[in-house]
């Protein structure tokens, strides 16, 4: 239903992105990895879009492009004045700093004032369930704990587009349930979400649309019920 309201908030047009790597001076041959190749799609207002594909298919690069963190080598990403926020497993920006300090840093960079975050701090800590660990350096956290921290920060944010990279796949069942509820609530209030996940169940539950990336190209772009059944056998082979 939401698909019919085509009001693009982000237009991705023919983007290509490659990583060049030259190991050392003595090796003349430089290694070029084409992460994305001529990728185009529209992200519409209220979309809940899943990006699927194998490891190294360019999914995370795509999210970074949508967030404006990196620029494509070719093509354009047009953001119609919307704010797009990425949350991933790296939510511990500074591994040496405590979770609490990382929340402060994240909050400020995502547009809150220091005072506003301090007011919300208790709520964030409570939601994360990290308890005493919130004051420990993030480098001591497990992946699950980092995911909790990242999601708890994102939970208080009001971004036009929420870009979620694998955060929901880690952590225990209870926290995952809590996070899913939050996203559900957001989705019903017209939040636009782009999700990278390997969990097909989660995609089926949360998303209405899927972009399947294969070897850096858009393999399929369509409704979740059309694409996922095709992805399943392909993923196994």
């Amino acid at each position: 239903m939401k698909m019919d309201v085509s009001n693009p908030v982000i237009k991705v047009r023919n983007i290509s992105l490659s990583y060049r790597q030259q190991a050392s001076l003595w090796q003349r041959k430089s290694y070029v990895y084409q992460a994305l190749h001529d990728v185009s799609f529209d992200l519409n207002q209220g979309d809940s879009l899943a990006i699927i594909g194998r490891n190294g298919a360019g999914k995370s690069s795509l999210l970074k492009l949508l967030a404006g963190i990196i620029q494509p080598d070719q093509g354009t990403v047009e953001r119609a004045g919307v704010s797009a926020v990425l949350m991933g497993l790296n939510a511990g920006y500074y591994p040496e700093l405590s979770g609490r300090d990382n929340v402060l840093v994240a909050g400020v960079l995502l547009g809150y004032s220091r005072k506003q975050i301090l007011v919300k701090m208790d709520e964030i800590v409570e939601f994360s369930g990290l308890k005493a660990f919130i004051d420990k350096p993030v480098k001591t956290y497990s992946d699950g704990m980092k995911g909790r921290l990242g999601f708890s920060v994102a939970n208080i944010l009001h971004a036009d587009v929420l870009l979620i990279d694998e955060v929901l796949s880690v952590g225990d069942k209870e926290f995952r349930q809590k996070s899913l509820e939050v996203i559900h609530n957001r989705l019903t209030s017209e939040q636009t979400v782009v999700l990278v996940s390997h969990s097909e169940d989660m995609i089926m539950e949360l998303c209405n649309r899927v972009v399947w990336i294969e070897d850096g190209r858009v393999h399929l772009d369509g409704l979740v019920e059309d694409v996922i059944p095709l992805y399943k056998p392909a993923g196994r082979s």
Binding site: L86, N90, L110
Partner: peptide
């Protein structure tokens, strides 16, 4: 380089 995690996540 130390802030690499940060700059991968947010525009700074």
């Amino acid at each position: 380089i130390r802030a690499s995690r940060l700059i991968q996540q947010v525009y700074v």
